[in-house]
Amino acid sequence: MKDDRPLLLLADDDPSIADTLAPFLERAGFHVLTVSDGAAALDKVHSHRPALVILDVLMPRMDGREVLRRIRRGNLWIPAILLTQVGESSERALALEEGADDYLNKPFDPHELLARIRAVLRRARPGERSLSTSWTLSALDLILDRKARRASHKGEALDLTPKALAVLEYLMTHPDECVSRERLLEAVWGWEYPAGTRTVDTRMAELRRALDDDPENPRYIETVPAEGYRFVAPVKGE
């Protein structure tokens, strides 16, 4: 009988993490392959072609970022989630640069990982580049140049704070997905702020002002009551 559960490759050098996450993900309906170092992860990617890879950043022999870089260099657009050890902002920026589809800071709730896996798989178009690996993203009149850290709307450059730009980047790489404030905080700010949800709202208001987007009748960013935000415009990547 052929196993039609999606195959996940989980690469983490800490056995306590691999040993507990694998059964959890199996129960959730996935087939899980675990490896404990980067070089083995790269081998398995080539031999098994998993539906998604989960890579720890700090691993022996080859770190998670290098693995991802090599996967991408081989024009393999397998979706990837990076598990970052420290919440450094440089690391998050890098995670995007290496073409990760999402990232999660340790320690995390396994349910959160599961939610990300499902969202990434839902977004993935087999064999195609994902938005996370595109340098330029466009939606309606909005263009985001991720490398130059610039955004323009109707041909005019937007004056955005770096945080607001990062929020926009996260939303545009996760279109049509309800993104909670907590998740934005973790992804963009890297740490939880006690007054965090308001912090997110402040930047969202800044974005909406810049985009001239009416929250009641949004073209770009929709508020999902009690949940978070959703980027509703269709996004194209180049």
Binding site: K163, W189, Y193, P194, A195, T199, T202
Partner: peptide, 11 residues
């Protein structure tokens, strides 16, 4: 840094 300053007063 607005977020850090908000942390100051929050704490």
């Amino acid at each position: 840094d607005r977020d850090l300053l908000s942390l100051v007063f929050y704490n």
